[in-house]
Simulated assay, not measured.
Amino acid sequence: MDAGFRSYWRVQSANGSRIVMDSPPDKEDVRPWLQVRDLLEAGGVRVPRVLAQDVDAGFLLLEDLGADTYLHVINGDNADALFDDAVTQLLKIQAIAPPAELPVFDEELLARELRLFDEWFCGHHLGMTLDCGDMDTLDGAYRVLIDAALAQPQVLVHRDFMPRNLMPAADGPAVLDFQDAVRGPIAYDALSLFKDAFLSWPQERVAAWLDRYHARAIEASLPVPELTRFRRDADMIGVQRHLKIIGIFARLNHRDGKPKYLADVPRFFVYLDAVLPKYPELAGLQGFIEHKVKPAIARLAAIVRE
């Protein structure tokens, strides 16, 4: 989510264009990126090729995959084909046995991500003061979401498998930004792909793509549950991710001075509005958003207009 310290530079050489990754060792160790890259490549996933490296200095020389990601080239006409190719890579990722040393998307991590919503969006961004009732409501909803995530079959999870992190390639797409991979819920990456942070699709197409992923996962002998359960799993982990990203975008604005991401926050409330009414166990969260968060958003917008 643009929160790291790595930078990329295109250079020209006698052998053509190359990309230099600069990952300052005191801020972002390049070793986790290399370890996950090697793990994915060994599993047949298309990842950027490393041509040279100076790990101690934090420099990598990579192949140049071009300037366009899926986010630049995808449209209503080519989305079916591009997403099908992306799912091919995703199935390879999920077939890789997560190493024992890989972090786990456990209760602590899930809860910490959810708290970004009430701390950074509700608190820092909207200036809301949450009372005991509000916190009880959120705690109850978070408990439902965490339990649902932990109950899913667990596989290798990219954690940001979305169009901005996929690049068109003849044998791809090539997968980027994988250094935060964990062992976690099987529905997470598929949901992230189709309910993107920066691009929205009609609900009917999203549902069809999720069903198509599910069918292909079964064919690949991956541990997906039956379809009805999978749809619920995708909805639940989607709510967790949407709340997290709303919080991250607020944090990027207030802590890191990157306000542009706030423009995409409404997209996630549209996602939430479509899912929350389906689940009575999330009625408290729906009411909190409808009766407290949305009025606070409207008040902030009125202040900004003035």
Score class of each variant (00 low, 15 high):
G58S: 09
D2W: 01
G58R: 10
I146C: 06
A81D: 15
A170Y: 02
A52F: 02
T88W: 01
P202G: 10
I146L: 04
L51W: 14
D189V: 11
Y279F: 14
D84N: 13
D54W: 13
R143Y: 00
S192L: 09
M236R: 01
I245E: 00
V87S: 00
S192W: 02
H254Q: 11
Q35S: 13
I96E: 02
A86Q: 10
L71K: 03
A95W: 00
L145Q: 05
D106R: 08
P202M: 07
Y213C: 09
S192T: 05
T69I: 00
R255C: 06
Q154L: 03
S7K: 14
S192H: 03
H124F: 00
I93G: 00
F5V: 10
T88Q: 08
D235S: 04
R112M: 13
V182G: 10
H125D: 04
F288R: 10
P277Q: 05
E226I: 06
S200I: 13
W33A: 03
P277T: 03
G172C: 09
P280S: 08
H158L: 06
R305M: 15
A86K: 10
L285Y: 04
F249I: 06
H291A: 12
D2V: 02
A57F: 09
M128K: 09
K258M: 07
F83M: 12
L199Q: 12
L300A: 14
H124K: 09
D77E: 15
P225D: 06
V45F: 02
S17K: 15
F105N: 07
L285W: 05
S17I: 01
